[in-house]
Amino acid sequence: MATPHAAGTEPAHSHATHHASAARYFVVWIALLTLTVTTFGVSRIPMSGHMHLAAAIFIACIKVFLVACFFMHLWGSEGTNKLVFGVSFFFVATLLFFVLADVATRFTLTNSRIRPLPDIDQSILQHQRPPSPEAPAK
């Protein structure tokens, strides 16, 4: 019977992680905590909303990189695993890009942004749950 053999595939799993001491995990953990505090601090700096968003996503990406590479051992793992991880983020970005491109460039009349919602009659809602889905919109 054919012996399964990953013919010509990836080099054997790097054993770097096997010999690393547990200390590296603590270093990564400290870095993650620091970045959490940083992202919190940055969000308190007065900036435009876009800058806040960009900064928050940038820091989140660094944290994801750290967790993926070290806690999840992607660093030194088989190339296929890195590829899978990268490709999945690529397709998330694709989905985000085209949907946002749509929302951002829509003909204004079809864009929900310009049509504010009708005000909600708060007095009704304080006392009773709306009986039907249409009730609060009236």
């Binding site: 012996t3 296929t80 991880f85």
Partner: peptide, 25 residues
């Protein structure tokens, strides 16, 4: 996977990463 435990180990880990990709999506 008889005779090739390394390939099996790789398969199990690789399968998990593929599953994680579905979770991300």
């Amino acid at each position: 996977y008889e005779g090739n435990p390394a390939a099996h180990k790789h398969a199990v880990r690789f399968g998990m990463w593929l599953f994680l990709a579905t979770e991300i999506l």
